[in-house]
Simulated scan of single mutants.
Amino acid sequence: MLHSDAAPARIDEQEIRLLPKAEVHVHLEGTFALGDILRLAKENGVALPGPAATIFDVSTHDGFTRPEVSTGGTAQGVGGAGLSGFLRFLDWQCGLVRSGEQAARVAYSFAARQTASGVRYSDVIVNPTHWNAWRGREIALMEALAAGFDEAEQDGLGSANIAYSLLRGQSAAEAEQLIGDLVSRRPARVVAVSVDGDEKASGRTGEKFRGAFRLAESAGLRRTVHAGESSGPEGVWDALDLLHAERIDHGVRSIEDPALIQRLIDDDVPLGVCPRSNVTLGLYADWAAHPLPRLVEAGVRVTLNTDDPAPLACTIDEDWAVAAEVYGFDRAQLARFAAESIRASFADDDLKRELLAELELLTPALAGAAPGGTP
């Protein structure tokens, strides 16, 4: 049951953390902890853009204000003049990562953060355009991050693979060159390609990136695309038809197009939904106005994610608890979300089976009832 007239008992975050789960829509650029930033700034002799206590509240910094509109790139709980200011903040932050050791440390810290929230596997999105010190060395950045993820996994933390993301403003030629290099060198842990950036500012970019995505698809890389946030349903259609997206990041405005909803159901395409991000950015007035429960009721495959948890000041277990409270989701539905997150991920089949089996032991008869009964 998705809704109840009676107020449900609040489901505690600790209970949610115990559910084996994956996260499929989270940006590494949006997960730097305050301690990570302070240490990196000190190592590089770089001044902070403002007081450490308010570093994520960049509205206190000159040139940075809170966003007024939603965008389709990395979520964007802070940012000057909309997305542009937040992207400047990300560029500054990621620009502090200048060595392989520092990049590996950021990856390790991400894995620790995810594990603390009960996330056992992550498809983490990395957009190299933010990492200024690595321009022209994008593959080296991927290798350094993979080394950090390797160490984290060896230490018993959750597993992570990388979705290498293009920026919507890049040209078709640049995108094809980057993906061609990725395909020829195949750095460890890069399992997918993505597109993010400002949909509204860039317009429809599906045709521009068709060649790069075909190259990735022919090489066996998975495909996920940011769409259906500021772009409306047409961005999702383009992601499906032109880029052969296997998963849509956001996708919430699909609810505006019944034919698109049916297409998502028929093609078994999951959405990586991030309600807090959508509400914080003003796409919806509040959680109650968000279409998440309508997407679930329509039969669309839905996963619940954080997008950029550090600037949004959230964790995935907290957001699942809010969703349960606002929408009346019960424990059975949360178990189905956990199972769906695992199935929608780009983890290998062995890990999916392992996590689903563990989930079913914790929630008998619930995990097996989730949509798409096999990994």
Results as ranks from 00 to 15, higher is better:
H226D: 04
G203E: 05
Y108S: 05
F86A: 08
L87N: 07
V279Y: 05
D57Q: 13
T280H: 07
N132R: 13
P375E: 01
G211P: 13
D62E: 14
S165Q: 02
G79F: 01
E143K: 10
E207R: 15
A112W: 00
A323V: 12
A75P: 08
I261S: 11
P375F: 02
L145W: 02
V191L: 13
S84N: 02
G30N: 13
L28R: 15
R247D: 03
A369K: 08
G79N: 05
Y121L: 12
G148M: 03
P51Q: 03
V183K: 03
N161S: 13
N132M: 07
E153A: 09
N132D: 02
R204T: 10
T71Q: 13
D57Y: 01
Q114N: 10
R343D: 06
D268R: 15
I162P: 02
D181S: 13
P187N: 08
I179A: 06
W287T: 11
G232Q: 02
E15V: 14
L141T: 04
G368F: 01
V279S: 09
A216F: 04
R168K: 03
A227N: 12
P51T: 07
C314D: 04
G232P: 03
T315P: 04
S345K: 12
A103I: 02
L243C: 09
A288Y: 02
I179S: 06
A75G: 15
Q333S: 14
I248H: 05
V26L: 15
K208R: 15
L157H: 09
A212P: 11
A201W: 01
I37W: 08
L87A: 05
T205P: 12
F149L: 10
F329Y: 14
K208D: 14
I179Y: 01
I342A: 00
D57C: 04
P275C: 12
L90A: 11
L2S: 12
A152T: 08
L295F: 06
V191A: 13
F213C: 11
G80F: 01
D150Y: 00
G373V: 04
R210G: 02
N44E: 12
E151K: 10
I11L: 11
L351Q: 05
G50I: 10
D123V: 03
V183P: 09
P258N: 07
G79V: 04
W131E: 05
R276H: 15
R210S: 07
H61C: 14
T205E: 12
E360V: 06
L242Y: 06
A338K: 11
A107G: 06
A116R: 13
L83Q: 01
P293Y: 01
